[in-house]
Design a protein around this nucleic acid. Structure first.
Lengths: 144, 144
DNA sequence: TATAGTTGTAACCATTGAGGTTGCAACTAT
DNA sequence: ATAGTTGCAACCTCAATGGTTACAACTATA
């Protein structure tokens, strides 16, 4: 299984908003054009980003804007905002191992902290990358 | 999305094989009893673990055994063996962003190395945990 | 050698979740 | 008042997971 494309989509949307913020109104229709997904999907993601306090969305008049400096928005913020993994748990357990087996009875408790440790490593890395990094990379690509 | 329960299931199975190796024949039926999943599922996972060289499975007579010391089997070995993520790529990209948009045209290339960096962090952590760690934890649980 | 117990695998089913789409009420700058 | 939006509900399709049955192939052993 893979982490939902909502994550890369959200990054794409945010960078798009920043890139075009001075040139046009970044509506869900406009963003749908760049990402090539349905405007409703864009609105759903914008709504999640808004709940996380990363963007403002103007009802009526339309258009989205980013609330903070790009350097203060990490991949982890976005990852959490779009809620890619079920209930925040990266690993899925097989349900109902046999309680009568000494292994089955304890496997969950034993693995829990180890899996959490792995998940923390993932999140730590996500936290180390910001939208500012993406922006400066994009600049390099556009200049060359 | 979550990482398939095949992973935790595989760990469970391997620890089970080790725990009961001296007391009984660890057949797919026996392992299905402890994990509480269908024997066919167990066989499928055993088959994947076998392809990865982690276990031997005896046809005909039946029973599985582990090929190396537990300290030499890492969570990463198991994770790769059971092939939890599609094509080895943890993140799923939205297909076909608009090539005419400067952001859409470059987003994939820009994100690729960053996402790989995150994936590497995950795998590095998985590599640091071995079945021996699980075994010693199990021992602690059973003694107390 | 016949048999019983097992593995390997194909074929199918049910359920779930993701992503997509339409439609429409609510909102707001002009 | 209107035109352009957003927010959201309702529905659809598709793919992947996990589950199940069925059966051929295999092998220790009686």
């Amino acid at each position: 299984m893979q982490i939902s494309s909502r994550f890369t989509l959200a990054v794409h949307i945010l960078i798009c908003i920043d890139t075009f913020k001075d040139d046009c109104k970044t509506t869900s229709d406009f963003l749908a054009g760049s990402t090539n997904v349905n405007p409703v999907i864009v609105r759903k993601i914008l709504s999640q980003l808004k709940s996380a306090g990363l963007v403002n969305v103007a009802r009526g008049s339309g258009g989205a804007s980013i609330t903070k400096p790009l350097g203060e928005i990490t991949f982890l913020d976005i990852y959490k905002a779009v809620d890619c993994v079920n209930k925040g748990e990266l690993f899925h357990f097989h349900e109902a191992p046999n309680e009568k087996c000494p292994v089955g009875r304890n496997i969950h408790a034993i693995l829990d902290d180890k899996l959490l440790q792995v998940q923390n490593a993932l999140e730590r890395e996500l936290k180390s990358i910001t939208l500012e990094d993406v922006k400066s990379d994009l600049k390099r690509y556009l200049d060359s």
